[in-house]
Design a protein around this nucleic acid. Structure first.
Lengths: 204, 204
DNA sequence: TCCTTTCTAGACTGATTGGTCCATATATCG
DNA sequence: CGATATATGGACCAATCAGTCTAGAAAGGA
């Protein structure tokens, strides 16, 4: 869908910087500082681009931010697709998925936070483009968790009375709450025990 | 602790505006826009104060923000103390507490968000004063929920194998996650059903 | 080599930022 | 009344904001 080679050699200097790498570096900055607190010089330093190049390539700060956010979401969804792959034993998959969240929300990783949650809180209320992406991500997340829970139920691994769709909503809230509480840099073992205890209430 | 009358009449014009009301109005602005996106003119309009009065009374934007945050936290803790009062039947108390969160995180209320969560994500990583307050709030929250769960356990109302301290951590993550997901303005009934389903996994 | 394109560095813009200051009005006390 | 303290509104400040533009360097294709 993207990155098709040019139809014919465009005579002259070819693009000499890696756009995707620039987006990734910009993402890192927005990730650790948030949208409003990120100033243009921060982005120029991180991307190692000149002002002219940055504006030529991305238009403006807001557009660059949306690309960074899309990149963050794509990475997160790709990771989910691996951890919660349908082929995998579903309870193991859920446990691995939760462990990944624990890893990312404890200690220094936790303190760093989450671009998506920070963006949801900072911008989703005022920025429709952002709100769409945030809502879409939560939908993706819930769908995949619900799928794993459904497969677990089919395999008879779920406790009595657990509805996969409802339990998925619970787990989504829980992991996003982990990201918030993670800002206080909780101990890994504590968060892991908490996540295990929750999952243990659903599986049999 | 606060608001003691002056030791002796201070000759001259007495304070003619309500400081607490100004803090509350400032809180509303920070609440809906976040720290960085709130500009001084926004605060002047909301508090109906002149620049001079605002700086004389609060020092600077950051100090005013901390006062607003403290006010928000005090309100939240006071509400918890009512909803989770030790005298109350503990399971009813927990149910009421969760319902309050559902109310505040669904529909338009949800879209408005939460000053504490937004602040945690926007500032806690870089601002020690803020980080202290955020961590303190989560501790208060967890302590109170754990207390209610303990009382429920003593009354034999908890399911087998549920540890109050661990379940409290789960519920804290869940409700803070509700605040995040609430930014997408979920339907009240859906959130209520989700919260009920979670609590039903703990009570017997 | 020459043409074309892309890059960089930085000057520059107008608007806005948080914060200071002051002249003036107002209100309450002794 | 007169002294004192507190308010207002707006001028003013330096710094920074996002964004535009240009001159010249750099590099590949013809």
């Amino acid at each position: 869908m993207s990155r098709q080679p040019p139809a014919q050699s465009p005579r002259g200097r070819p693009r000499s910087f890696d756009v995707d790498a620039a987006v990734e570096r910009a993402m890192d900055v927005f990730w650790s500082r948030g949208y409003h607190a990120t100033a243009l010089p921060d982005l120029l330093r991180a991307t190692r681009l000149s002002r002219g190049s940055l504006y030529a390539a991305f238009g403006d700060k807001h557009s660059l931010f949306l690309r960074a956010l899309d990149r963050y979401i794509a990475d997160a969804v790709a990771r989910m697709d691996v951890e919660l792959a349908p082929g995998r034993e579903p309870v193991d998959a859920l446990r691995a998925y939760l462990s990944g969240y624990v890893e990312r929300t404890s200690g220094a990783n936790g303190r760093r936070g989450c671009l998506l949650v920070a963006t949801a809180m900072e911008l989703a209320g005022q920025d429709a483009e952002v709100a769409r992406r945030v809502a879409g991500f939560f939908r993706s997340l819930e769908t995949r968790v619900a799928g794993a829970l459904s497969r677990a139920k089919s395999a008879g691994k779920l406790a009595d009375g657990v509805d996969p769709a409802t339990a998925a909503k619970i787990l989504v809230c829980f992991v996003e709450g982990l990201r918030v509480v993670g800002k206080t840099a909780p101990a890994r073992a504590t968060s892991q025990a908490t996540a295990d205890a929750l999952l243990d209430r659903f599986v049999s």
